[in-house]
Design a protein around this nucleic acid. Structure first.
Lengths: 142, 142
DNA sequence: TCATTGACTTTGATCATCATAGTGATTTAC
DNA sequence: GTAAATCACTATGATGATCAAAGTCAATGA
């Protein structure tokens, strides 16, 4: 409750786990327009809480990447239910990716999502996204 | 996100759905010590959001009861996952009710919880709680 | 009738958040 | 090899939210 009873922390975790954002700048340029001081504070707090880890980049000394710890990854089902509640049965665009995800089997989605994040990916972000793989599998099964 | 990205709103929903609290005074006397002005604000906000309903009592004109709408009830899985994440695999007292709930089948817990709330009850609060019924069934099945 | 209960409001101080501007260490472009 | 750009932040001052405590006001119970 303390951890996620704050919209910014929740938003950061969403960006990290669903969109595959990893750097300060990426979080900063998110839709919701978080300010740099608040972002810095929340990242530090999440790190102190053992939910994310801060790792300076090895190739570019300016960059820092943030990624989810196991404890952070464990919040995936929470994010899933939050998304489901947020959609609230409302039909959006048929080609909205969340819409597509919600039509899939919950356990399969969670498993694929977990796996993707552990491999450095996320639900929607990047080529190797859980979503892309779920979609591919869907085509094979049917 | 906007709705539950606020710890007080989340706490109110928890008290409502798991502890069966229904009145201003009950919420006010919660563990977390919310102030009356903030409580009033959050209850109004949740009502405007269609998540809870405010109903003046018919027997006592001073009292007001707050209860979850269907939209509010739909937040139960979210609360469930939040609780599960919050426990984080940590074993607490063996006789902690949340511990017992987490050992049960997810779908059964959610179904019983949903039903209890629709009948005016909650997960843990009161005689007719979902927990009490789940426990009773558990004894029969085994 | 008079204290009490219950649902809030008011108030003033403290705390958090906001947008904006900066800092300082890299790294790229020319 | 220098200047511009990028990156992760910090600093700042105004504005907004939160806090505890006390107060209001109608309805009830003793």
């Amino acid at each position: 409750m303390e951890t996620f009873g704050d919209s910014w922390s929740l938003l950061i975790m969403r960006d990290l786990l669903t969109l595959g954002k990893h750097t300060f700048g990426e979080f900063l340029r998110s839709e919701e327009r978080i300010g740099p001081s608040v972002l810095a504070d929340r990242l530090a707090r999440l790190e102190r809480g053992g939910i994310i880890v801060r790792t300076p980049s090895e190739t570019d000394a300016r960059k820092v990447t943030y990624s989810a710890t196991e404890r952070g990854i464990a919040a995936i089902p929470l994010l899933y239910e939050a998304a489901r509640w947020g959609m609230g049965g409302v039909r959006m665009d048929t080609d909205d990716p969340w819409e597509a995800v919600m039509a899939m089997d919950r356990d399969e989605v969670l498993a694929a999502w977990h796996r993707a994040v552990r491999e450095g990916g996320s639900l929607f972000g990047g080529e190797e996204s859980a979503f892309a793989r779920l979609r591919a599998r869907e085509r094979v099964v049917r």
